[in-house]
Design a protein around this nucleic acid. Structure first.
Lengths: 103, 103
DNA sequence: CCTTGACACCTAGCTGTTCTAGGTATAGCC
DNA sequence: GGCTATACCTAGAACAGCTAGGTGTCAAGG
């Protein structure tokens, strides 16, 4: 399920894990894996560009941390928090719409 | 909600409406609109290529009907029916996975 | 009669997102 | 010293959905 069916929902997932606590990119990947029971095993080439995109559009902010390794730690901005709320209600509408047709 | 978030799920939706009864392309668009309460207003440029794709991969079969207008009527093949079943369970897994992360 | 709008089909090319497949570099363990 | 896990990055491929154009029929209204 490393999927094309994911399209359009990745941003919300990233915002969701980062809204709990700031994390660096690699840790975001692992958090997604952990919180989904291993189902969401996203490659770095998917997540890193997504983080950059989200930062460019002001939903995330990042800071370099140098505790041994170089790590870029991301946190959700206020706008990102609001966007996460919108994403959640959009998700609910999306699923009910699809399910209305699918069942 | 005419969306990028739809990606990867359109095929299942089309199979679902056509599994009830065979329809021509334009009617598929209207059926999707009706069954979703107007939320799914997909442009022709999305649906027609999808129908062709599904036929090419053997999940749909079509026949021209000439009752006044030219209409290409699509029906779900046996393979398409099986695929619809798979799509439904994939959908369930997909939503539970996303929701585990999102909530 | 002729224009407008709904019906019904089609496709080339744009866009944007995910993935593939490469690359760099450090830390820790055997 | 070499291997694995950690940690970052990006160019380009692949592909789905959309935009924006096109054709043609039919029915209703002016």
């Amino acid at each position: 399920m490393t999927a094309d069916e994911l399209k359009g929902h990745l941003d919300a997932l990233i915002l969701a894990v980062l809204s709990r606590e700031p994390l660096h990119g690699y840790a975001v990947i692992e958090a997604l894996k952990a919180r989904s029971g291993g189902k969401l095993a996203l490659p770095e080439g998917t997540v890193y560009p997504a983080l950059h995109r989200l930062e460019r559009s002001g939903l995330l902010a990042s800071q370099w941390a140098h505790d041994g390794r170089r790590r870029r730690v991301y946190r959700v901005t206020d706008r990102g928090q609001r966007e996460l709320g919108l994403s959640r209600s959009r998700w609910r509408e999306f699923t009910t719409t699809i399910e209305a047709v699918l069942t």
